[in-house]
Design a protein around this nucleic acid. Structure first.
Length: 287
DNA sequence: GTTGCGTCCTGGACGC
DNA sequence: TGCGTCCAGGACGCAA
């Protein structure tokens, strides 16, 4: 489930591989979630940026190719003739066999772009929770993207900002983090990790200023640490080079329900809040 | 406007 | 071994 650290790791791997590449052909799964991929044909990729969990490929016609990886999305560059790429795409007509890649490649490939040098950028997404869009440079074509909160490493993301945003809502703290509005890029894994580190209860609806300050520092710390470790691979996530991340070895809360808290030894609890599996320490994280 | 629930989607885990 | 059921979760739609 790619969150900010995973998307950032993919961006860093992808940028040197695709910057300057000219898209000469493309295809996609017929779903409207993926079919905009073909709109990039005839352009050159000028940049690879990230906003929250979204990858933004700057095109030389002024637009941006936006890719959201959803839960199981993977982006890989394959060399011309690489069996993993299914060879040169035959036909290349968008809306072909649902779920099948060009030339009968991986059936979970939802979109692909072929470059002038023969290489392909391929988007594999088993559960089809990802999506692709082509929008103007100002991102106004995607309201969700335009409404994202500040980047966690941006100076605009301050303890005061976080406190003000959390104070303005009565929703649960974790639910607010997952909304992407207080800060962009936090998903279920890092919300649990940051709340554990900050000692905040995920189901609390209010957070004092000291608590918000601790949570701010925790968000920055867990995201930066995860990027340093190459992201978290629980099942599907792979870097642009096909490698697994290493942060799953450093998780201290997420997915560890029933295990002892490494800080106090109390058994970590697991529950579902607002439809999302949540793990927390009942002793370290009191309401 | 805010909040919370249901839906989409598929592979893996698990029980029978 | 095979079948059915449950679970995971980001974004979005909808109802209250």
């Amino acid at each position: 489930m790619p969150e900010l650290p995973e998307v950032e790791t993919i961006r860093r791997g992808l940028a040197p591989l695709v910057t300057g590449a000219v898209v000469v052909d493309a295809g996609s799964h017929p779903s409207a979630k993926f079919s905009p991929a073909v709109e990039a044909v005839g352009t050159a990729i000028e940049s690879v940026d990230r906003r929250g969990k979204y990858l933004l490929l700057g095109l030389d016609d002024g637009r941006r190719l936006v890719v959201h990886l959803g839960m199981t999305g993977q982006l890989r560059v394959v060399e011309a003739g690489d069996p993993a790429g299914g060879g040169a795409p035959a036909g290349g007509e968008a809306g072909g066999d649902p779920g099948a890649g060009p030339d009968g490649g991986d059936p979970h490939d939802r979109a692909w772009w072929r470059f002038a040098d023969g290489r392909q950028l391929r988007f594999r997404d088993v559960r089809r929770f990802g999506r692709i869009a082509v929008v103007d440079r100002d991102l106004s074509g995607l309201p969700t993207l335009a409404a994202l909160g500040p980047e966690p490493f941006d100076p605009a993301f301050t303890p005061e900002h976080l406190w003000a945003r959390l104070r303005a809502s009565r929703a649960r703290i974790k639910t607010q983090l997952l909304s992407q509005r207080p800060v962009a890029g936090v998903g279920n894994i890092y919300a649990d990790e940051a709340l554990w580190l900050a000692g905040g209860h995920p189901a609390a609806r209010r957070l004092g200023r000291p608590g918000a300050t601790r949570l701010h520092a925790a968000i920055v710390e867990v995201l930066a640490s995860a990027i340093d470790h190459g992201g978290t691979t629980l099942r599907d996530y792979r870097t642009a080079l096909g490698d697994v991340g290493g942060n799953q070895l450093h998780l201290r809360c997420y997915g560890r329900g029933g295990e002892p808290c490494e800080r106090c030894g109390t058994e970590l609890r697991r529950a579902v809040y607002d439809g999302r599996g949540t793990t927390w320490c009942p002793r370290c994280q009191r309401r």
